[in-house]
Design a binder for these strands. Structure first.
Lengths: 312, 312
DNA sequence: CGAATTGATACTTTCTAGGCATCGAACAAG
DNA sequence: CTTGTTCGATGCCTAGAAAGTATCAATTCG
């Protein structure tokens, strides 16, 4: 059921009426508006017809607002004010000075690259608000094509079609184990030394590729760990390790602020590698200046801590 | 310094764009708006030019909002919604179903006619809000021509030019005196019996005519009272009488709810008369339907308690 | 590779805002 | 009371803009 254009008046009518209401004088109002007085009279009369209520009492010697006119003025003043600021607002949005970017990240990102990026970005683009949500890799890979997030910091398994990514970090995982664990006294470990110790890991669905790569690394070392618990976010795994539920993987960068009851030990020989990238929909940075600004800051920080070459 | 019309766009542009943003489809949006598709494309393009920012990304197969477009939608949705309700709102204001009336009154009015009027008016016109302020007669006579109040309940001394009035009440004043006063045992009093007893009265500036008429009445009775205190609002005079500061005038109607420590006694012979009228600017009831509705209710109540004829 | 769909463009028609001239009413000055 | 001035409204004409029709270019899908 097509419905016709719903307004029988437009902004011109409202602006003209506002000026008449301010001056209560058609001739002077017309002068201010740079139109002839008859045009103004007609527009106001049209507005009254469109609204179905008289707005002014004209006695050819005095113009006064009716109650309806008073009510109209009160309602359109804020509307006109907000509309008059629109072009400036939208231009600043379009130029990236103002806006918002929805960003997802994993625990590793927040433990490493993200804090300095955020600090720098807020300093350079104070008008842009970031919406930050911790989210597993798999969820980010779903949310990115949907446009639910503008960019994500995650750990890809294979190239994702339609996404552009930039590697920010590559690190070999080490092991986090309780301080009173038999192996805790060692400087470093080998995977096979862990035997079939109980493991705390993230849910496989959150990053199946990396999950399977971890199991494959164990398998190549000839051992099969018992997965005791699957927990997320990653920070909670530390709590489980501390309470003796098992051991877990972690990157060196992420292990800075471990509680005293647990220790981090690097792995010698084969070890699963974590790769942190920032990813966004290909081409979306062209349409979203705020995102582009954010990615530029990310790129600047990626350049600083460029990681050495290595296998995927 | 004449300034040109400030908007390079109008409501049509905004409504058209809103529909495209909702459907993300020019053809269907055009159908909904009951216009041809080229017209819609042009209007949206014009809006983008007027705002100086691209609002949509068109890939001939997919239409998406840019950040600026998203920001625009968020800002204009409430504006369009409020504007679309304007005709209905203004018609109800113009018809008197919705509105406000500023009313001033004196203590006598609130003690007598006003409560039933207010009850009745709110029942019949629930959409009209009354702004009620107690105010002396003189202040009301200043505020009425200014339009600061729409109508007032006061005690006129002489006809006021430009005002229409309707008499609501005529009453001979009596005397309020402490219960332990020597004259309190009498059924009624004469003015001259009060001699030069201390009096509590309202400030002369609040109603010079009535004030002088009171003094003249004393003078005709051959006595001259001492004005000990001038106090306002009237209700406070009762407190002063109670504490023995003097005696005061009051209308019988107003004396209903006196505290037990004071008594009311009518006056025999000469006594100042209080006349309560409702007044409004001549002709203003024609322009203000809410006021007209209020005055109709007042008139209905005035008819009920029509006072008998008597001297002004 | 052809058919269909989408949004943009060219051209014409229709509508409307604006300007000019003028009118009737109301107030002011004499 | 008369005359002149000022105010907003009205009639007529022109110019500009919006809408409709027809068509194009690009993309998608079978």
């Amino acid at each position: 059921m097509p419905r016709k254009y719903q307004f029988a008046f437009d902004l011109r009518h409202l602006v003209y009426f506002r000026e008449v209401a301010r001056q209560l004088h058609f001739r002077r109002a017309a002068e201010t508006l740079a139109v002839a007085q008859p045009a103004l009279s007609r527009q106001v009369a049209q507005l009254e017809a469109a609204l179905g209520a008289p707005l002014l009492t004209r006695t050819s010697r005095r113009v006064e607002l009716t109650p309806a006119g008073q009510a109209l003025i009160e309602r359109i003043e804020p509307v006109l004010d907000s509309l008059s600021g629109l072009p400036a607002v939208l231009r600043s949005v379009a130029s990236g000075q103002v806006g918002q970017v929805r960003v997802a990240f994993t625990g590793l990102a927040m433990a490493t690259v993200l804090p300095p990026i955020l600090r720098d970005f807020h300093r350079r683009h104070p008008g842009v608000r970031l919406q930050l949500n911790e989210s597993p890799t798999a969820a980010q890979l779903e949310a990115l094509p949907e446009g639910e997030i503008a960019c994500g910091f995650f750990h890809p398994d294979k190239p994702a079609p339609g996404l552009k990514t930039r590697v920010l970090l590559r690190e070999r995982n080490g092991i986090v184990l309780p301080a009173d664990h038999p192996l805790a006294s060692r400087e470093s470990l080998r995977l096979r030394e862990l035997g079939n110790a109980p493991f705390v890991l993230f849910p496989r669905s959150h990053n199946p590729g990396f999950y399977d790569r971890i199991l494959a690394a164990f398998s190549r070392s000839g051992v099969a760990p018992r997965i005791e618990e699957e927990v997320w976010p990653r920070a909670n795994a530390i709590g489980l390790v501390r309470s003796g539920m098992g051991v877990t993987f972690m990157c060196p960068s992420e292990s800075r602020q471990l509680p005293p009851e647990v220790v981090f030990r690097p792995l010698r020989g084969p070890a699963p590698e974590s790769r942190l990238v920032v990813g966004w929909r290909a081409g979306s940075e062209a349409a979203d200046p705020a995102l582009r600004a954010f990615l530029e800051v990310v790129a600047a920080h990626a350049g600083v801590r460029a990681a050495g070459p290595g296998p995927g």
